[in-house]
Design a protein around this nucleic acid. Structure first.
Lengths: 167, 167
DNA sequence: TATTGTTATACTCTATAACTATA
DNA sequence: TATAGTTATAGAGTATAACAATA
C-alpha cells in the first residue's frame, strides 16, 4: 500500500478537496469576521460548545484536540473568547488540573447571530452544486476518512515533552 | 434555495470536510517542513509551476488566483522561493507590467525530494479508507463544487479597488 | 513521574493601503 | 483610468519550551 505516486483520480480528488476547503474557509472567515467579529477557530470553538455539547462546556484538552490546535494556541483563543465574554473558564469538577470552558449567554447570542449567514455561505458555496443524495454520499465518504485520520494522528497534537534531545 | 439552517446530513458533510481538510493540512505541512523545508503554500506554488505547467512558468496574478492568496502575500512567498533559489522572476514577455515566475532546476529537485513523502502522507491519511471507486466518486463530487466556488467567488481574491462603496 | 494548562517568546504568514510602472 | 506587482506596516495566530500545580 506504499504507493510512490498518486494516480490521476487521486490527484483529482486531492486537489479538489484542497481547493474546496481553502475557498470555503476563505468565504466563511469573511462572513464570520464581518457579521460576528469571529475567526474561524473561534467560531469552531463556540459551535463545539454551543451546538456540539449538551452542557455547553468542554475541557481545554478536548477542545484542543477537536479543533486540532496546540494547547498554547487554544489557551490564547480561549483567552480571547473569555475576554470578549463569550465563554467562561473554571476549574474542572473532578480534576483540579483541568479547566472547563463554558459558553455564556452572550456566546450563544453571538453564535445565533452568525449562524444564519454562516449557513447561507455553506449552502451557497458548498452545497449548491450538490443534490441531497450527493451530500449524503460526501458525508459517507469523508466520515470514515476523518475517523481514520483521528486514530492515526500524524503526530500533531501528540508529543509534548521529548526525552532529552539536547540541541 | 436560501436555507436558514443546514440539515443533519449537510452538517455531517460540512464537518467531515472541514476536519479532514484540517487534519490533512497538518500532516502534509509537517512532512513538507521536515523533508523539504517548505510550507504548504510554497509547495503548492512549486507544484503548480513544476507539475501543473508545461513551461515551468506562470504569472504572478495567475499564481495568486490559483493558490487563493492576496497579491502581496504571493509577492512575499515568491520572494522566499526566489531567495532560496527555487524560482526565478523575470519581466513577462508580452506585458511589461507582468512578472513571470519560473521554477529552477533546484526547485524541481526540491519538488522531487518532497514528493514521495508527500504522496505517502496523502495515500495513508486520505486514501487509505477509500476504494478506487470511492476516490473517483469523491473527485466527481468535489470538482463541480470547486468550479462553482471559483466562478462565484466570495469576493476574496476578486476586487482590488472598490468602486465606491462608502459602506 | 505524568498530565493539565498557562506564559513568554519568537516567528511565519497575511491583508490593507500606498506607491511605481506599464497598458 | 485600470491593471500588475512591490513595499511598508501592522496584526493575527501558531508552536516550542519552560513553568506551576495537581494526579
Amino acid at each position: 500500500m506504499n504507493q510512490t505516486s498518486l494516480d490521476a483520480e487521486q490527484l483529482r480528488a486531492y486537489f479538489a478537496l484542497t481547493e474546496v476547503a481553502g475557498l470555503l474557509k476563505h468565504a466563511v472567515e469573511q462572513q464570520l469576521r464581518e457579521v460576528g467579529d469571529l475567526s474561524f477557530v473561534q467560531f469552531q470553538l463556540l459551535a463545539r460548545l454551543g451546538l456540539g455539547s449538551d452542557t455547553g462546556s468542554a475541557r481545554m484538552t478536548d477542545l484542543a484536540d477537536g479543533v486540532v490546535l496546540s494547547r498554547s494556541a487554544l489557551t490564547y483563543q480561549a483567552g480571547l473568547l473569555d475576554k470578549a465574554g463569550l465563554v467562561t473558564r473554571s476549574p474542572s469538577e473532578d480534576d483540579d488540573r483541568g479547566v472547563t470552558v463554558t459558553i455564556t449567554e452572550a456566546g450563544r447570542e453571538r453564535l445565533e447571530k452568525v449562524l444564519p449567514g454562516h449557513t447561507e455561505v455553506i449552502s451557497h458555496q458548498l452545497f449548491q452544486p450538490l443534490s441531497a443524495k450527493d451530500v449524503r454520499t460526501l458525508a459517507d465518504l469523508l466520515s470514515p476518512v476523518r475517523d481514520h485520520m483521528r486514530s492515526a494522528p500524524p503526530r500533531s497534537a501528540a508529543p509534548r515533552r521529548r526525552r532529552r534531545d539536547p540541541e
